[in-house]
Amino acid sequence: MPNLKATTALVTIACLVLSLALLLFPWLMDLVPSDGTWRDARLRAWAPAMPIFGLLALGWSTLGRLVRKRGALGVGMSPEGIYHWSRFACCFYAWEWISEIRPTAQGAPRVGLAVAEPSIRPDNGEENWVARIDRTRRNSTRLGVTGLAVNPGAAYIALVF
C-alpha cells in the first residue's frame, strides 16, 4: 500500500519553503520596522536562532531520501509481518509481535499497532540504522492512512485480517 506521490512531494515542498523562510528570518526581521511590542521583541530575540531551525527543516526534507534504502514510502505486508517505510527508516514488525490493531482519528486517521517486540530482534535487510532507534520504532507503530494510495478502510481491514 504505497503512499501517494503527491503527498510525499507536498510534504517535501512544504518543508523546503519552511526552511527557506526560517533561513531568511533574521534578514526579514531587519527589514520590518520595530513597533516596540513584546511580540516584536520576542521575534527579534529569536531571529538569530531561526536559521538553525531552518537547517533542521532542510535536513528533514532532503536527508530522508539519502538515509532510507527504499524510494517509495508506505506500508507493506508479507507472510512474516508488516513493513512500514517512512521518511527516514523502514520498521518491520512480525505478526506474532502485534497484539492489537486500533484505528484512531486523533489529528488524522491512523492505524495504531500494539507491538511487543522481543529484546533481541532478528536482523532485517530492509531496516537501516535509524530503525534501531526506539523512538523511531514507537512512531512507526502509528500508520498514517490518509497518505496511502488506497481506501483507508482497506488498509485497516487488510491489517486486521
Rank of each mutant, 00 (worst) to 15 (best):
T104E: 13
C90K: 01
V67K: 05
V75F: 01
W38R: 14
D40K: 11
L58G: 12
G36C: 10
E100C: 11
C91I: 06
M77Q: 06
L31N: 12
A45S: 01
G71I: 01
P109L: 06
A41W: 15
F92D: 00
V111Y: 02
W46A: 12
Q106I: 12
F53W: 12
G74M: 04
G64Y: 06
H84K: 04
A105E: 15
R39H: 09
A94E: 11
R102P: 12
P48G: 03
W46S: 09
A45M: 01
R44F: 08
W95K: 11
D35K: 03
A57V: 02
L58C: 09
S34Y: 08
G36P: 13
A57C: 15
G59N: 06
T62L: 15
Q106F: 13
W85C: 10
G71D: 02
W95M: 09
L63T: 07
A94C: 09
L31A: 15
L73A: 07
R110T: 10
P51A: 06
I82K: 02
P79A: 09
Y93R: 04
A45N: 00
L58Y: 01
A45R: 02
H84Y: 03
L56F: 11
A45I: 00
L73G: 03
M77L: 13
R44L: 06
P79N: 08
G74I: 01
G59V: 04
A47D: 00
W46N: 04
I52D: 05
L43R: 14
I101N: 08
A108H: 07
I98H: 01
V111S: 03
G71F: 05
A89M: 10
R87N: 10
R65G: 01
L56N: 04
Q106G: 14
L66Q: 06
S86I: 06
D40L: 11
E100I: 05
T37Q: 07
R44N: 09
A105G: 15
D35R: 07
S34K: 13
G74T: 03
W97A: 07
R87F: 02
G107Y: 01
I82E: 00
A105N: 15
S61M: 11
M77V: 13
V111I: 15
D35H: 07
A105F: 15
A49E: 01
V32Q: 11
P103N: 07
C91H: 08
K69T: 04
V75D: 00
F92T: 00
G81K: 02
L63K: 06
R110D: 01
F53P: 09
I52T: 10
R65K: 10
W95F: 11
S34E: 07
V75K: 00
S61P: 15
E96H: 14
R42L: 14
T104P: 11
Y83V: 00
G76C: 08
L55A: 12
C91K: 04
R68D: 04
H84W: 00
W38I: 12
W85L: 10
W46E: 04
W85Q: 11
A41S: 14
L63R: 12
I82N: 03
V111C: 11
A72C: 04
G107T: 01
T104Y: 04
A72N: 07
K69G: 08
